[in-house]
C-alpha cells in the first residue's frame, strides 16, 4: 500500500500540491486523472523520489520515501522512465538488462540473465533483442522500456502518461499488458492517464485530481459520471454505458 500524508509541493511561489492525503491499495491498477496542471505527474514523481519531498510523508509498504536507501526502494518500486534518447546505442537486451541493476550492481548472475530472457519473451521482444533502440519504432521502444520495468521485478510500477505518442494498437496492447501484470503477477500499477476512456476501461481505482487536491476516488463506475467530470474538467461530456462499460463522448 502506498500512503501519502499531508504532502504539499511548491515550485517557486506556485502551490502544485495542496495537502494531499491518499491511500493507494496494493494490487490492481490505480489511475490518476485530472486536467493539465492538476499535480498528477508531480505526485507520481514524489512517490518515485524523482523529486525531493518538501512537506508531508509518503510510505511504500514499510519503506519511507526519502529516508530508506535508494537501492532498497529500487527493488520495491519502479517508474517507467520517459523514453530517453540518452542511450540510443543500447540494444533491447542491454536496456532490459539494466532492470536487473538494483540486484546485481553490474555483475549479473545466471538468474539475472534468465529474468531478462523471461522479460524479452513476455513482451514479444525476442526478435528485436539485439537491435539497437534507435532502429526501433516508438511503440517498440516503449515496449522495451516496459520490459525493463518488468525485469526490475518490483511490486509497484508507476507510469506517467505512457500512452503519449502511441497509436491505438500500441496503447491497447500496453494497457492489456499492465492488466495482465496486475492480475497474474500480483503487481500494483499506478498510472497517470489523460484519456478517461482508457482509465474507465482498464483501471480498478480512479483518483481524480484538480488544483493540487484529490477531488474524488472510487471505481470507474463511481467516478466517471457527468457530475464529477464536469467538476474536475470544467467541461460537460456525455457519459454512455454500453454493455456495462462506461464511455465518454468526445
Amino acid at each position: 500500500m502506498i500512503v501519502i500524508s499531508d504532502v504539499d509541493y511548491f515550485i517557486g511561489p506556485v502551490k502544485i500540491l495542496d495537502g494531499v492525503n491518499l491511500e493507494l491499495p496494493k494490487g490492481g491498477i490505480s489511475a490518476l486523472i485530472g486536467p493539465n496542471g492538476a499535480g498528477k505527474s508531480t505526485l507520481l514523481s514524489l512517490i518515485a523520489r524523482l523529486m525531493p519531498l518538501q512537506a508531508g510523508t509518503i510510505t511504500v509498504d514499510d519503506l519511507t520515501v526519502g529516508a530508506c536507501p535508494n537501492n532498497t526502494l529500487a527493488r520495491r518500486l519502479a517508474i517507467l522512465p520517459q523514453a530517453s534518447d540518452a542511450a540510443p546505442l543500447l540494444t533491447v537486451r542491454e536496456l532490459v538488462g539494466f532492470g536487473r541493476y538494483p540486484y546485481h550492481k553490474g555483475r549479473p548472475t545466471p538468474d539475472d540473465h534468465a529474468k531478462v530472457e523471461d522479460a524479452l519473451e513476455a513482451f514479444g521482444l525476442v526478435p528485436f533483442a539485439d537491435r539497437r533502440l534507435d532502429t526501433l519504432s516508438g511503440g517498440q521502444r516503449q515496449r522495451a522500456q516496459v520490459a525493463m520495468t518488468y525485469a526490475q521485478d518490483t511490486g509497484y510500477i508507476l507510469l506517467d502518461e505512457p500512452l503519449n505518442n502511441l497509436d491505438i494498437a500500441a496503447s491497447r496492447s500496453l494497457m492489456r499488458v499492465l492488466r495482465e501484470l496486475a492480475a497474474a503477477h500480483d503487481r500494483t500499477i499506478v498510472i497517470v492517464l489523460h484519456d478517461i476512456n482508457y482509465a474507465a476501461a482498464y483501471a480498478d481505482l480512479i483518483v481524480a485530481m484538480k488544483g493540487g487536491k484529490i477531488v474524488a476516488k472510487g471505481t470507474p463506475d463511481e467516478i466517471v459520471t457527468e457530475d464529477i467530470l464536469k467538476e474536475v474538467f470544467d467541461t460537460d461530456p456525455k457519459v454512455h454505458r454500453i454493455d456495462g462499460k462506461v464511455m465518454i463522448e468526445v
Binding site: 518515485a48 535508494n70 522512465p81 530517453s84 540518452a86 539494466f98 550492481k105 553490474g106
Partner: peptide, 21 residues
C-alpha cells in the same frame, strides 16, 4: 564505478529508478 556510470548515462530519471542518486 564503470557499471554505475552506465546507469547514470541513462539519464537522471532512469538512474534514480534503478537506485542510483
Amino acid at each position: 564505478l564503470r557499471h554505475r556510470l552506465d546507469v547514470l548515462a541513462l539519464g537522471d530519471t532512469a538512474a534514480i529508478n534503478l537506485g542510483e542518486a
